[in-house]
Simulated assay, not measured.
Amino acid sequence: MADPSVPRGGVSRRNMLLGGAVGAASLATLPLFSTPSREQDPLSCVAADVSDTDRKLVISNWPEYIDEDGKKYKSTLTRFQNRYDVEVNYVPDVNDNIEFFSKVVNQLGACEPTGRDMFVLTDWMAARMIQMGWIQKFDKANVPNLDKNLISSLQGVGWDPKREYSAPWQTGFSGIAYNKSLVGEVRTMDELLTRPDLKGRVTMLTEMRDTMGLLLLSEGADPANFTDAQWNAALDKLSKARADGQIRAFTGNEYINDLANGNIAACVAWSGDVAAAGDENLVFLPPDEGMMVWSDNMIIPNLATHQRNAERWIDFYYEPKMAALLAAYVWYVCPVEGAREEMEKIDPSLVDNPLIFPTEEFLASTHGFMALEEYQIREYEGAFSDVTGV
C-alpha cells in the first residue's frame, strides 16, 4: 500500500498554464548559437566557488518538476537543505528551451554571469551549450552517485559520453493522449490527423522535436537519421492537417487541462503529464509507429559561484531513495539505478509502471531526435514555425 505521507503526482513539469511558446518572429531573429565569437573556453570562464562560505544554490528548472512539502511529508528539496545547510533558490523559469535560452544567451556568449548555478534543459539544448563551451565540467569526486547509479540506457550519450557535464534529472516520452469519455482509442498519428470525429479537437506540441519526431515516424522515417525529403513529407502532412481544420492549436503546457476539460479530445502529449493528472479518462499510449524519448539534464553554467553545492545537489538526487521520492511525485522515467527497489517502500503501485520504470521491451519503441547543425536548427525550426504559426 502506498505511504500516505508521500504526495501523489498531480502535476508535472510540462502541464502548467504558462503559454511559453516562442513566436515565429522572435525565432527568426533569435541568435540561436551562431557566430564562433560566442564560443567560450570553460576553463577560462570560471568564477571562484564560494559554496563553503556562502551556503546557497540557485537552480532554474521547469515548473512543477519537483515534489513539495505536505502536512506529513518533507520534500526532497527540504531534506537537501537540512542535510547540507544550503539555502536553495529554486526558480521554475524554464517554460520552453528556446525561451529560456533567450534569457541567458547574451551572458553565456560574453562570459558573463547568469546569476544561476544550475540549469535543467532538454538534451538538444544541453548538448549545444556544452559544445559552445558554456557549461562547466563536474568534479567527478563530488558526484560519485552519478557514475554509480545512472541507468545504463542514459550512459554514453554522444554529446557527453562520460557524463562529465550533464546529469539527467528525469526522462520522458512523447506520444498520443486522448480522453476516453469523448472518443475511442487513437493509436496512430495518421488517425490523430485525419479521423473525422477528431476534427478541430486535436492539439500538437510547439516543441518541434516532439511533434515532428512523431510525424517522421508516421512516414516510416527514423527521427534520429532522416533526409530533407522525409522531413518535407512529414511537414506537408502537418500543414495539410492544419489547413483541413483537424488541428485546433499548437500548444505548450496547457494541453492537459484542455484534454481534461473536454476542449480537445486527443493530442500529442508528454507521458508524465497524463500519468500524473489523476483523471481516469485520460489515456497516454505509444503510437503504433513508436514514441519519442528525451531527457532533461542538470548542467552547471560558466561563472556559477556555487558549483560545489550544485554537485552536492546532483549527488543527492542520485541516491536511490531520493530519486524514488521524486519519481513518485513527477511520474517521469527515473534515471537512477536502485530507485525501483526504493519505490517498493514508497508506493508499490508504481513499481511496474513503465512510464517510470520502463522495460527493455517498452524502450524498444522509443526514438531520439537527430542532432542538428546550426543551419539545420534554423531551417527546421523556421519551417515548423511557418506551419504552426507560433
Rank of each mutant, 00 (worst) to 15 (best):
A2Y: 05
D3E: 13
S12Y: 09
M16Y: 14
L18D: 10
G20C: 12
A21F: 04
A25M: 15
L27P: 00
L27I: 01
L32F: 11
S34I: 12
C45S: 14
D49E: 09
S51A: 04
R55D: 03
R55Q: 15
K56G: 02
I59Y: 07
N61L: 10
W62V: 05
D67F: 08
E68I: 12
E68K: 13
E68Y: 11
G70N: 02
K74D: 11
T76L: 08
R79F: 04
R79C: 07
Y90I: 06
V91M: 11
V91Y: 04
D93F: 07
D93A: 01
N95T: 05
K103D: 04
K103W: 13
N106P: 08
A110Y: 02
C111N: 06
E112N: 08
G115Q: 07
G115A: 05
D117V: 00
V120M: 14
T122S: 02
W124T: 00
R128L: 09
M129P: 07
G133Q: 06
N142Y: 07
P144A: 12
D147N: 11
L150V: 00
I151H: 01
L154C: 00
R163C: 03
Y165K: 08
I176T: 03
S181M: 06
V186W: 02
V186C: 05
T188E: 06
M189I: 09
E191Q: 14
L193R: 10
E207L: 02
M208I: 03
R209N: 08
R209L: 06
L215S: 03
L216T: 06
L216G: 00
S218C: 07
D222V: 10
T227V: 11
D228A: 13
Q230P: 01
W231H: 11
K240F: 07
R242P: 00
Y255R: 15
L259T: 03
G262F: 07
G262N: 05
G262E: 04
C267V: 13
A269T: 00
V274K: 04
V274A: 03
P286K: 09
G290P: 13
M292S: 06
S295Y: 02
N297Q: 07
I299R: 08
P301L: 12
N302P: 00
N309T: 01
Y317I: 02
P320K: 02
P320S: 06
L325K: 08
A328G: 14
A339I: 01
P348D: 03
S349E: 15
L350E: 09
D352E: 06
I356F: 07
F357I: 14
P358G: 06
E361P: 02
E361V: 09
F369Y: 15
F369K: 13
E374Q: 13
I377P: 01
A383I: 05
F384Q: 13
D386E: 13
D386C: 10
